[in-house]
Design a protein around this nucleic acid. Sequence first.
DNA 1: CCGTTAATATGTAATTATTACAATATAATA
DNA 2: TATTATATTGTAATAATTACATATTAACGG
Lengths: 136, 136
Amino acid sequence: MTEDKVKKIKMTPQRAAILKYLDGNTSHPSAETIFEAVRKKYPMISFTTVYNTLQTLKDLDRVRELNIDDERKRYDPNVNIHHHLICTNCRKIVDIRMDFPLNVPDEKAQGYMISGRHVEFYGLCPKCRNKKKNNY
Amino acid sequence: MTEDKVKKIKMTPQRAAILKYLDGNTSHPSAETIFEAVRKKYPMISFTTVYNTLQTLKDLDRVRELNIDDERKRYDPNVNIHHHLICTNCRKIVDIRMDFPLNVPDEKAQGYMISGRHVEFYGLCPKCRNKKKNNY
DNA sequence: CCGTTAATATGTAATTATTACAATATAATA
DNA sequence: TATTATATTGTAATAATTACATATTAACGG
Ligand SMILES: [Mn+2]
Ligand SMILES: [Mn+2]
Ligand SMILES: [Zn+2]
Ligand SMILES: [Zn+2]
């Protein structure tokens, strides 16, 4: 009875290159970063294809879109629940692999049906801490 | 010894109107929403002034910028720490006034100096739940 | 192996949010 | 009331993302 709509997609060299770049990648790249990286190996790829592919991968739950950076969307091939720590200076994002007790009692949920959660931490990464220190 | 740099700003009718609209507002409006709202009372205000004022208020910690909506920035005059619940369908954002135990042990912080945190919950708001229900 | 075709890639244009800038106006101060 | 630093405005520029038309191709069946 489970509708396993295994939507199948064509495997193209472009998609393969993007998937390969993303596989195991924990750097939370933007579309542009992905484009530039993939372009090195596959110079004829178009930016639009990167966006299209990311949309497709989102639909397939192969990639998660993060709105944690105020300038651009970031993408994360790790779709398991985990949280993030972002540098307020250089925007480097790292994973926080921890569970937090985040139960919202019904009276606080205001009728919403809660289906997901995400904790963002802000701070200074080691590099930026040093820069600020030696900055007088 | 405390440097209370009470930066003072000029009080203008535009700023007063924006502040009045924001005061106690829990709707997490976008710049455009603020502009449209303020414009009704003060039709000659410019969009740029709204952006400028929001920037100023951010600098003064009178307003907090939220990156929770993937299409546009949202603004929150409540700068006390609290968390949010966003409707994945209509993007309505409501407050969650709760504390969560969010201690990150040093070995998980990867050298970052953590200075802030924010929990985002995703779900369907009551209206959108009903819409989906009556949607066959 | 082809041939067919729906799905995909590409290049470019359009859209949208936000910022930059230069000219004008004005709140605060003396 | 004059001065001036600061703010407002209108417009142009920037930047991320999406839309769209056309060309290409992966996958499937014969
Ligand atoms: Mn991650
Ligand atoms: Mn809030
Ligand atoms: Zn940093
Ligand atoms: Zn909703």
